[in-house]
Structures are given as structure tokens and as C-alpha cells.
Design a protein around this nucleic acid. Structure first.
Lengths: 225, 225
DNA sequence: GATGTGTCTTTTGCCTACAGTCCACGGCGC
DNA sequence: GCGCCGTGGACTGTAGGCAAAAGACACATC
């Protein structure tokens, strides 16, 4: 166990490495897009972004490529990158897929969940409810994301998790205005879901998760009017 | 209808545009990977590939980035790209997701399908059976892909289609040896599936598609022994 | 003989530079 | 005045080049 140095485990502060520049650019741009700082349809000029971020065009290009494969930007050949414009139809389809993935995750979680995992879920749920009670909207949204992530983790399917993470992030982008509104009801549904998982009731877990995400869809369409 | 030029429709050979170089490199590499010309775990050196393809390193880099987002290669920082090594667990998870996506597609197709679409499906099915009868394995595999693609098209969910296409391609990579074996049974299942879609029976279509892809999983595991 | 160290090579990460392409604007003919 | 063509600017696509990091190997040391 490398005892030769005699240094305690945490003595070396791990020498924080900034990581590849392209990844940081990617995250920066994604942040700018999701926060609406870069608006849908906007033309993203490589040299501009590069100058603004203090890097060269190359990392920016690579970040844009990646963003385009995940449909955050549309990359028209010889014309550049444009922030993707959400469509009504697309939002709907995306939500359908999300429902599908989350429901399957719930089913798998119900099939595999152990006692300690369920305790963790309930803790997350409690914290979420506390955030709602305190009118901490950002906190509630964050806890919601963590709860869903935990369920996905319990499902134990990494491929599914990766897909769901991507879809989820985009859904959140489309539905940010909506997500903030439905605080209260969402968490009572979460309780039911955890109960179903605890009971190992796969069918009920699936059904609840389906209904849960479908509610989001309804709220979106009601808001349209 | 633009009669000013007086040229017949097909006179201009569409001015074949090669398209961005990175895309062609991407497709070339993907082809090399799926055909096992580049073996799993192999270290892909940018300058080598660039020289071999007759282009500079930049398009190769961009292609590799894209391949890495789709998990065809693993991109270790400061170390380069390595062809992804399939795992037993991963193959299983991937197939689970595929089952999920295809089953949903079948359900949606059953919900939306029109008469003319069903005719198209049956034609594809007939052609597939003919290929099997003629021992045309490659043809049968191709028709299989087209049939599934058609069903996905009928589902009318582009987001779902895109995801399924990616998952499918990787599944095919993992399961190529298997796919060639199960010719006959596969097509009788297809017939049943079309029947269910024709009858607008969403539940039956889902169930059949589930069973259909699950059979693939079984064959894979039997082959292991 | 085993271990640690220094150097050397290879390969990536990033930057800069040049060529090709598309769009917009203005002039020209009708 | 209206439409078409040519020209200019801006941006992307691609290439080449340099510095830094990671791995390999030989050598010195214990």
C-alpha cells in the first residue's frame, strides 16, 4: 500500500489539474445556452467566442462539434453554429422519450433496490420537501435532479443512465419555466414512487413514474394558453 | 417551377459536394471500427490515421471527438483515442435499452399506422423472407434493418428514432456474429408484429417487439458457452 | 539484483496562418 | 422601378507548427 513515503493519505492536495481546455469550453458554452445567455437561433461565431473566452478557435470548434452531436446547436456546413431552436413537436417527443427512460429506470430500481438505498432516497425526498417548504426553488429543483439521478443509479444500467442524463438536461432546458411551478405536488408523487420501489412493485413504480412525467407535459401545454 | 433554364431535371448532376471532410473521416473510421478492421483496444494515433486517409490531423481529431461522444472510442486525456472494448455488462445494458426503444416504437407505430404504411411493411417483410429463402444472409440483414427503420419512421418520433439508430448501430456491432444466425424465426416474428400493428393493438405490438429483441439476447448468451 | 531517476521519444493539445465558401450589398441593364 | 450579376467582407474549413505531457528505456545507486 505504498507505505514508503510515510505521507498521510490526504497530505498531497491532488494537484488540481484544469483538464482539457475543450471540455471547459464545452461546459461554459452549455451553461451559457441553458441559462439563455445565448438565445435560440443565435449565430455563434467561433472567433468571437474564442476571444471572449480567451482561447484559440480550436477548442471552441471541438466544443461546438460536441454540442452539435447532442443537439444543443445546429452546425450548418460552411456557415457555422446556431443555437438550436426548440420546437413544439420536439419538446413533446423529447418528453415521451424521457417518460420511457425514467419509467424503465423506476422499474429496474424497484427490482434491485436494497434497504440502504431506500433510506438514501427518503433522505433526498425529505430534503426536497424541506426546500419546497422554505420556498427555496433552486434548492428544490436541484434536489429533484439528485433524486432522479439516484433512482437512475439504483437501476444499475449505465447506458440507460447516460441517455437519460442527456435527455433530461434538454428537457430541463425546454421546460425550465414549468419546472419551477410544480413544487408541491411533485414531491408527494416522489413519496409514492419510493413506496413502490420499497415494495419491489415494478409495475406500480413504472406507472407512477409515467404519471409523474406526464404531469410535467400537461403543465407545459396548459401554460401555452 | 424554375423553367427559366430550360434544362431537364436530371441534367445537372447535383454538383456533387464532398461535404465536410470531418464527416467523411468520421464515416470512414466508423466503418473501419464496425468491420473490425480496427480492433477493440487498439490505440488510434492521429497522425497515422491522417496520413493514411490523406488529410491533416484536424479533421481526424474532430472525427475522433465525435466518435468518443458516441462511445465508439475512449478518449483518454493527453493519451489519445482507443477503440472501445465491449463489455459483457455493457452489451446486456445496451440490449435492454434497445428493447425499450424498439418496443415503444412498435407501440407508436401501432397507434398511428395507416393502410399504405402497412402495405410497405409487408413488402419489406416479403423481401426479407425471400432473402432468407435464397440464403442471402447480407440481404436478409439489410432488409431487417430497413424493416425496423420503417417501423421507427411510422412511430413518428424523431428524437426516439435518432436514439434508437445510435443504440441499434452499437448493438449490431456487439452482436454481428449472432445476427447472422437467426434468420428464419426472426421473420415469422416480424409477420406477427405487422399483424399487431395492422390491428392497432398497441399492447400486443409492444409485447411482440419485446420478445423479439429478447430472443436476440438469449441467442447471444447461448453462443457464449 | 532491485529500485529509483534522468533522459529521450512519441503523441497529444493548442495556436496561428491560409485557402475556400457563403452572404450581403451595390451597380448595371432592362 | 425591378431584377440580375459582380464584387467585397466575413466566417468557416483545413493545414502546418510548436510546446507540454506521458511512456519507455537505460543508467546509476543502494
Amino acid at each position: 500500500m505504498l507505505p514508503t513515503t510515510g505521507l498521510p493519505q490526504g497530505a498531497v492536495p491532488k494537484l488540481e489539474r484544469p483538464g482539457p481546455l475543450r471540455d471547459r469550453v464545452y461546459e461554459a458554452l452549455l451553461e451559457l445556452i441553458t441559462t439563455r445567455a445565448l438565445q435560440p437561433g443565435q449565430h455563434l461565431v467561433e472567433s468571437e467566442l474564442a476571444g471572449h473566452l480567451g482561447v484559440s478557435r480550436q477548442p471552441v470548434r471541438e466544443a461546438l462539434q460536441r454540442l452539435s452531436t447532442e443537439n444543443w446547436v445546429d452546425l450548418r456546413p460552411a456557415q457555422g453554429a446556431f443555437v438550436h431552436e426548440p420546437t413544439e413537436a420536439e419538446a413533446d417527443q423529447l418528453l415521451t422519450v424521457r417518460t420511457l427512460l425514467e419509467a424503465e429506470a423506476a422499474r429496474l430500481a424497484a427490482a434491485h433496490a436494497r434497504a440502504e438505498a431506500i433510506i438514501a432516497l427518503e433522505e433526498l425526498c425529505t430534503e426536497g420537501e424541506r426546500a419546497v417548504a422554505a420556498d427555496d426553488v433552486d434548492g428544490a429543483v436541484a434536489m429533484n435532479a439528485r433524486l432522479h439521478a439516484k433512482i437512475m443509479e439504483l437501476a444499475g444500467n449505465e447506458v440507460l443512465a447516460e441517455l437519460a442524463a442527456r435527455v433530461d438536461r434538454r428537457v430541463r432546458w425546454y421546460y425550465t419555466p414549468v419546472a419551477r411551478q410544480r413544487g408541491q405536488q411533485s414531491w408527494t408523487e416522489h413519496r409514492e414512487l419510493i413506496a413502490a420501489i420499497t415494495a419491489r412493485d415494478e409495475r406500480r413504480a413504472t406507472a407512477i413514474m409515467r404519471a409523474h412525467t406526464e404531469h410535467t407535459r400537461k403543465m407545459y401545454h396548459e401554460r401555452e394558453k
